[in-house]
């Protein structure tokens, strides 16, 4: 097996547990889209081109006929603005990937495969094959399950009954463990969590991710500045 094939396969293996959960959410989203009047073709087209769960769920909640397209476009941008930070971080690990491929590849960057890519980059270079092994099955699963959901309509019951709604949280906790570097990480995570939760409860929309993330980053910068001062004092 060539190195490329091995990397692609490893990507698929790493994303497999997520595909099950994404498939269930996709089914549910498809049924909701159908109930708002979207055809299976329209549901599939949105999943394949937008490919961002949170913004699609919110769009369906806001959906009217005819579709308020400008409002939906602006809302999608706000909900997905976290991608700007995620892409900035991920681009640091794209050194192995040819320049011309980086922007097209970011088309398949979603929360889950982004997180697994960042995790991978902690221990080894991120290859295009591994990244695609994560991303391609995600797009395919998400799109296909959306279409099936839209065709099947209302038969699908509450995913919370089987804990599927918690699968993403569990994955992220599992990935977070790999980023642990001691008490400093704890401080970053604690502040990020509190700010995000408070923002979610007080500010409408999806700003909580960006606000929580930036608060965590601010803590890291402040702790880093303290460390630099301590080092400067030690050497003087």
């Amino acid at each position: 097996m060539s190195k490329t094939t091995a990397e692609f396969r490893q990507g698929i293996i790493d994303i497999l547990p997520i595909l099950a959960a994404a498939g269930v959410i996709g089914l549910l989203w498809g049924t909701q889209a159908a109930s708002k009047g979207l055809s299976p073709l329209e549901a599939g087209l949105m999943s394949a081109t937008v490919f961002a769960g949170a913004s699609q769920i919110i769009a369906i909640e806001l959906w009217r006929d005819p579709a308020p397209w400008f409002f939906l476009t602006v809302t999608a941008f706000i909900v997905n603005v976290r991608h700007v930070l995620m892409g900035a971080s991920l681009s640091r690990h794209m050194g192995e990937i040819p320049q011309g491929w980086r922007a097209p590849l970011l088309y398949v960057m979603a929360d889950e495969n982004w997180a697994l890519s960042e995790r991978r980059a902690l221990t080894q270079p991120l290859t295009m094959a591994y990244y695609l092994g994560l991303g391609v099955p995600m797009v395919v699963t998400w799109t296909v399950s959306s279409v099936i959901g839209a065709i099947a309509g209302e038969w699908f019951k509450d995913p919370a009954a089987y804990g599927f709604d918690f699968a993403f949280s569990a994955l992220f906790i599992g990935i977070l463990a790999g980023f642990w570097k001691g008490p400093k990480t704890g401080a970053v995570l604690a502040v990020s969590a509190v700010v995000a939760a408070v923002a979610k409860l007080t500010i409408p929309g999806a700003w909580y991710v960006v606000l929580g993330g930036l608060a965590g980053v601010l803590v890291a910068v402040l702790l880093h500045a303290e460390e630099e001062e301590a080092e400067a004092e030690a050497t003087s």
Binding site: R82, L176, S192, Y208, L211, G213, A215, G216
Partner: peptide
């Protein structure tokens, strides 16, 4: 330091409300 903290901070912010 800021960019190293970004992935875990964002991951936590996504799941914190849950």
């Amino acid at each position: 330091a800021a960019f190293d903290a970004l992935p875990p901070a964002i991951l936590m912010a996504v799941i914190a409300p849950t």
